[in-house]
Amino acid sequence: MEQITHVQNDAIAAIQAAKSTEELRTVELDFLGKNGKLSALMKGIGALPNDQKPLFGAKINEAKNTVQSMLDARVQDLKVGELSKQFEAERIDITMPGRTPRYGREHVLQQTTNKIKRVLGSMGFVYKESPELEEFKYNFDALNYPPDHPAMDEQDTFYVTDDKVLRTQCTALQGRVFESTEPPLRVFTVGRTFRNEAVDRTHSHTFHQVDCFMIDRGISMAHLKGTLGVFAKAMFGDEVKVRFRPDFFPFVEPGVDYAISSPKLFNGRWVELGGAGLIHPNILEKYNVDSREFSGFAFGLGVERIPMMAYGVDDLRNFLENDQRFLAQFA
């Protein structure tokens, strides 16, 4: 019996002396292995009187368990120490630059266009496109321009022939739609427009426009204001308010200029966004829509205005120059 205590003490001493998990492995084999010292004691059991045999066996097992659990605990201790050494050796500088995967940058005007399409599309307006090189009649006549209107001058409009102009407004889509679609209808477009204008920070001969219109029974200025309100909130934030001011465009009556303001943007000032109004009854009648039964609204705005206002872009020319230093700021 003392022998067992003796061997157990030896084993404990060896465990405590071991400096690595490898040394512990040797200790384990020495004492607990098939031919280890504790197992060897078992061989002496045969020489004992029968009544002592169970007690002796139990004592050895108890010693084995004690040694095993001490060994396990010690292995854990040493492993933690060894891993932390490994971690130290594997230390990296997390401030070094990452590897950027290639991804296609969307143009900022495209991002704006996509947002417009999402918002108006979700309100049931169908997205349509029409030619940039437009027939004179759709650009002007269809929109209730009186003959000889100043906007038709070559100083203002790019002509290709007498009958073909680079559209001066995306509103040119309206006549094309009214010609082919019976009301009720809801349509919008986003596209490129051209005016023969000098180029500076806020003017260009080429820019983009949204034009949105609907015809149904009982459409009023309140519906226009409500739709613009939702649209402006979606584009500029929930706190945006819409204001109407009377203005003149040949294709609407009443005609308004609408402005938005928000406590967060433009220091709370009113900023004009575009023109709007009820579709002129002359236009409805031109396309055989009964202006007593149906009415409609239309509004337009410049696409470039939106990122200019929302992101503080101060030069319109940036948008069509494809300078990656400019575009990479947005995507």
Binding site: M123, F125, S220, P246
Partner: peptide, 19 residues
Amino acid sequence: YELIPEELPIGSTPIGGPQ
């Protein structure tokens, strides 16, 4: 015009967006 309320049009709504 400041007295005009904001309302949304009701009535038939087509499936909007590009097609």
